Each structure stands twice: as structure tokens, then as C-alpha cells.
Amino acid sequence: HNGKLCKLKGIAPLQLGKCNITGWLLGNPECDSLLPARSWSYIVETPNSENGACYPGDLIDYEELREQLSSVSSLERFEIFPKESSWPNHTFNGVTVSCSHRGKSSFYRNLLWLTKKGDSYPKLTNSYVNNKGKEVLVLWGVHHPSSSDEQQSLYSNGNAYVSVASSNYNRRFTPEIAARPKVRDQHGRMNYYWTLLEPGDTIIFEATGNLIAPWYAFALSRGFESGIITSNASMHECNTKCQTPQGAINSNLPFQNIHPVTIGECPKYVRSTKLRMVTGLRNIPSIQYRGLFGAIAGFIEGGWTGMIDGWYGYHHQNEQGSGYAADQKSTQNAINGITNKVNSVIEKMNTQFTAVGKEFNNLEKRMENLNKKVDDGFLDIWTYNAELLVLLENERTLDFHDLNVKNLYEKVKSQLKNNAKEIGNGCFEFYHKCDNECMESVRNGTYDYPKYSEESKLNREKIDGVKLESMGVYQILAIYSTVASSLVLLVSLGAISFWMCSNGSLQCRICI
């Protein structure tokens, strides 16, 4: 991952900044910058967002509201009850120091605090018919004063009620008058409520006091790749198909172990950190130390980045220098085999997901714990399936590479015959000098055995068991695999060879 928040398929997220979902939807004055928000790819909250409900109280069923919003990608904020005409018999300019803005008392931008007009609070009834052709999110509140005197001074009615009804919602609220500790300079409380109004449905408000009335509502448009994440990451000019709280993932790998919460087309989250597919040879310690064997393909974004291909070729060293050249036929066979294998694994496992966190309130801790156990169970199954699949494929890959290298080895052996000696570690020792032209003939299969047989015969008789390297004779190393990324691999195959001279070296080696 890149540690950044990015656009998702070209669409920017909605960053709530210092506000949370509650503050944004109710219209906390400190969240005025969010009022123009219309569309987004996903919503970003920060872990310690401080601006929620400015007048103390709870947004009821907040967790369910977050779940609903996680599939919303755009909205239209509109005046559901026009301020100047909807409440002619009531005062609608209630403000509070708890919702101060720029040093002055204020109130929510989407709600109206209705109080008595003169000395009376006549029963009010108002309704709205949803003609938007889509779901409408309606929010309101109920004020709970701290004393009967406060109730009387604001609403005149000691036994007030609030009723809200639609086809799918029907509740009646009565204020709970009680002494409470002071929070944000208030002994009173406000509880906030919401409902989704279906197209064509009607919502009716009736009250004799204590109503925090809707002013603006939201017509919602769903987008199934949307979601809500909690993150401290910063926004950058970048684009992605998959976003996590820790950063964007741009990967076609089937798995990731970065974060379980994802938005967009994302690899499946697994616990494993070692889900690797081999593309090189079986481990040979001396070669492995030099980083030549054991190439791997990573299938977990965050564990290993991208696929690494092994390729086969020849390396030689003689009086004229040293050089490398790919054996294109065996390399292409290996590439085709690995590509098919990788595609097979991805096809089997690479279903892209959006995974969002589930919200539970403080009273639902047991449910949250149960949900976590269920999620953990599914996660263990996914991890096991992934590891088992790759384990089985790896064994076949190792066998496949062994065969490829063996074929190259036999190709060289059949040409050199007794003009060189096998020394048991995949290397041959020449009994004759071999210049670049000679080396090329070994690589392309045109090695002239009779041409060098007499010199080889004489050297075999002279050496008589002495280690060949100390006599200045020449080696050919018969097994060799270097490691390159897919891009470098293609470039390498396009070149005939490249040279690395070893000044004054008397050794001649050709490596497979």
C-alpha cells in the first residue's frame, strides 16, 4: 500500500475532517465546509473527530445509520420544511452556546429548535410527501429539559409530546424532565432520530412541544462500492481501485494482509504473511546465498510486491572476458508455465471484495464479540484455502523447474562428451581453451567436438587428477538461474548478450 488516501476510480472521497457522521448530518456549525458535499467514492472519518452533536445527546440507531450510509455515493440536500413558512405559530430561531460559531450562539444547520411564540405553543402538524424518486433521509430531535421551569419557559406545556409517523415508522416521544450533570454547559439533553422515507411515502410530524424540527433532508443515491473508513492518512493526487484505512492498494494479487476493511475492488484479506509461490528452483544453499535460486511470486499485497520470474541462460568467462545470454527457448517455456500457473491461482482465488467494518453500540458488546468470532472463522478458512492451494502448486513448480534445468544440462553434456569433466555440482571442467566463438557454439548447439578432442585428450593426460582450476583450465557451469522482474525479464530476452569482463582471468566458464 502507499499510505495515502486516493480517488477511487477517479472519484474523490468525502473527508469529514474534524467532524464525524453525526456532526455532518445534523449540521454542526463547525462542519459548515461539508454542506456543499454532493457525491463521493467513500467517506473518511478520523479516529478522534471532535465535532459531532454540539448540544449533548445521542443519535439513536447511529450504527444502523452508518451502515445505511456505507452504500450511499451521492445525496441532494434540500429544504424539507421551509423555515419561514412551515411554522407560522412558533418561534424557530432557537440557539445555544453549546453550538457556538465564530463566538456567537448558533444551532444545527439542518434542524430548527421550535419554541413557544408569545406565551403559547399551539399543537403543530406538518407533513412531507417524498417526490424525489429515491429514498429521503429525514432527521429530527426531541429536547429533554433539566427542570419543569425550563419546560414551561420554552414550550408552555408541561405534558408535551412529539409524534412522527410514516408508512414504515411510527413513534411517540415524551420529554424526560430530570436533573443531569452539566455537559457542554447544558443540564438538558437532546436525542436525535432518523428514518428513511421511501419514494411516494408521507411523513407526518405532530407536537405540542420539545420538537427539534427537520429543516433540511437528504435524497440518497446508492453506490455499492462506497463505504466509510476511519483513517488518519492524508489525501493525495492519486487514483486506485482499492482503498484501505492504511493506504491505497493497486494490485491484481488475490490476497492482502494490510487491513480487513477495504473499499472498492480489493484482494481478499488473509492473516498469512508467507503466502508465496515459487518460480525458481529448489533451494541450493551456495546459490541461494548469491540470490540466484528460489525466486518467488508473492500473492499477498503487503507481504511480497508483485511476481518475480526466474529465467535460464548461459554465463561464460574466458580470456576475452565474461558474458550472459538467455536461453530463449527454455526461458519462454518457463515463463509460459509460470504465467499459466499464476493465472490459474488468481482465477481460482481472485474475487474482488469490498469489506466494511460493522458498528455496534456499547450495549451490543456481546453481539460485536460474536460477530468478530464469526469473521475470524471465515478469515481462517480463507487463509487455509489460500495456503493449501499455493503449497500444492509450489511442489509442481519445483518439479517443473528441475526438468527444465536438467534438459539444459543434458544438452551441454551431450555436446562436450569427454572434452570436459562433470564435477558433480552442476559444473563441467573443460580440457581445452574455449574462446567466445567456442562458447557461442555450446550455447547454440553447434559445438565442434572433433575440433577440440585432441587438445582435450592431451590435457587429460597431463592433469592426472590435479585440480583443474589450479592448472588454468576452464570450467563450464551447467545450471544457472538469475532473477529478474517481469519487465526486466522481457528486456533481457530482447538482448543477445551483455558482457562482464574479468581482467586477466584465465578461467573459461559457460553457465546455464
Rank of each mutant, 00 (worst) to 15 (best):
I296A: 09
E393P: 04
Q352F: 13
H315T: 01
D380I: 06
H315F: 14
G302I: 04
A478Q: 07
E359Q: 14
N385F: 07
D309C: 05
K413F: 10
V345F: 14
N371Y: 13
D376E: 12
L388D: 03
Q317T: 13
I308M: 10
T262G: 15
E429R: 08
L477D: 01
I463G: 08
G298I: 04
I284A: 13
R443W: 04
L416M: 09
R396Y: 07
G323R: 08
V483L: 13
S322H: 11
N318I: 05
N459D: 07
Q475D: 15
Y312K: 06
L292Y: 03
M277L: 14
A295D: 07
T262D: 00
L253R: 15
N404V: 05
Q475L: 05
K462P: 11
H316L: 00
I335W: 07
I296K: 03
G247S: 07
N283G: 03
L363G: 04
V261T: 09
K274D: 01
S470P: 13
L281A: 03
R271M: 03
H236R: 07
P450R: 14
I346K: 02
N369T: 15
Y474I: 13
E319V: 00
P450C: 15
N369Q: 05
I263S: 02
S441E: 08
Y409K: 10
G465M: 14
L493P: 07
K365R: 15
I296N: 01
N340Y: 02
V356Y: 11
Y312F: 09
Q288E: 15
R271C: 02
N407I: 03
A478K: 02
L489D: 00
I479Q: 08
I463S: 03
K329F: 11
S492H: 07
G306R: 10
I249A: 10
E461L: 09
L403R: 12
S497R: 00
S485W: 03
A233K: 15
S485K: 07
T262V: 13
T482L: 12
K411I: 11
Y312G: 11
E393G: 09
K372Q: 14
R509P: 01
N336I: 09
Y289W: 09
I296H: 04
I476E: 01
E454P: 09
L477K: 11
I338N: 05
S234C: 00
M349W: 09
D327C: 06
W304E: 06
T331D: 05
A295E: 03
G321R: 05
L370H: 06
V412Y: 05
R276D: 01
R271Q: 09
T339W: 01
